[in-house]
Design a protein around this nucleic acid. Sequence first.
DNA 1: TCTGGGGTCCTAGGACCC
DNA 2: TCTGGGGTCCTAGGACCC
Length: 428
Amino acid sequence: MYPARFPAAIRRNPESSVPESPSPRRILLVDCDAFFVQVACLEDPEGAGKAKYLIVGGTPTGRGVVTSASYSARAFGVRAAMPTAHALRLCPEATIVGVPRGVISERSRDVRRALEDLSPIVQAASVDEFYLDLSGTERLFTGETLEASAWRIRQSVLERTQISVSLGGGTRRVIAKLATRCAKPAGVHIVQPGAEDVFLRQLDLADIPGIGPALVEVLRKKGLVRVEDTWPVQIEWLQRWLGDRRGAWLYRRIRGVDSSEVDPHERRKSISAERTFAEDIGDDRELGRRLLKLTGSVASTLREKCFRARTVTVKLRDSDFKTRQHSQTVPEAIESDAAIHEIAKALLFDLRADRRMPVRLLGVGLTGLVGSEDAPQLGLFANSGAGETDRERAVSRTVDELRNRFGRGAVMPGLLVEAKKTPGGPKK
DNA sequence: TCTGGGGTCCTAGGACCC
DNA sequence: TCTGGGGTCCTAGGACCC
């Protein structure tokens, strides 16, 4: 038996810098198998659930790409991020369904909650990946091997959430991550302490997390393709080719050196939304309307997560696929639709002035997040001219409430910027 | 083949301050 | 009067991950 929730005493204190523990760390990465496909099937057992080959992603006629494909479809060469039109040519019998957005985060939360009952430290790395640190739990599970723990966790998550996961394990995060690939699908793979070098040396450089297409190409030109080839290369050479930092990083990376902790308290750093249009848009008024929807969406997410933001970024992809962005940072963090939209509007204006082409994609991002409770008292900066007014904040929060009660369509975005036009605004 | 949407992290240059 | 260097913040762009 094990406790339903781990007592606070054995959760690691994030403040204390614990020296390297004498016994090797026990880290697991839990990765949901074809998560979007599983969720689509669970939500629609009669439709998606019955498809022989299933692709989750954009429509075949639109501009979509594959988000996730069933293992049966992957056998035809279908991969994530591939245009759906291409995927259909590879696997013509495939059924395509849209991404079940809201349900994805619900199911992700279910998996996370299940894991929190099974491990003292859980960190979500994405919607479908979770790191666990089981170091120090050996006594609790009286001699259970990491492999046995992983199988037990897999079974328990499956029973509680109906989601099938695979687990990779090892003494470091990067090892656990790599091990997961050997575990997939629906399995477990543990790299034993001391076996890391042998495990790593059989891999291609491209297999290592953080080594993407660009770096692979640079290294290939130096004749390096496999970890085995790169192992004897001195750090000085890597630094000469890649720069001091990146060279040193690569040297450590292929050796699996990774001291990063599994951090259950990691805070979100940005909130963004972007849309690729069905057809390119050249009309500024239409772009303005799309911008209004996007700012409304990111601003309400911002408030929902109890943040304010200091930096607003507008991103634009022109019809020739050139991507540009402008951003602006304000002295006091803001949260209202009106204040965020005001800045975004000016940024979009500048971007359009720089280069006037039909637009393929428009996006709005918020960074420099601070907790709303950490932000200065309401009203303190109401008349500073740079920030937002109490009235603007109040309007946005009221709208959030109305939408919670009556649904998203209850208040249209146009009403929100009205707040700017009444006494107190507009500002220039 | 014709390129989604949500993120994180890094680099490099310029402004500004000491 | 001329010339520094370091630190921090901001902005733009890009690599990478799922």
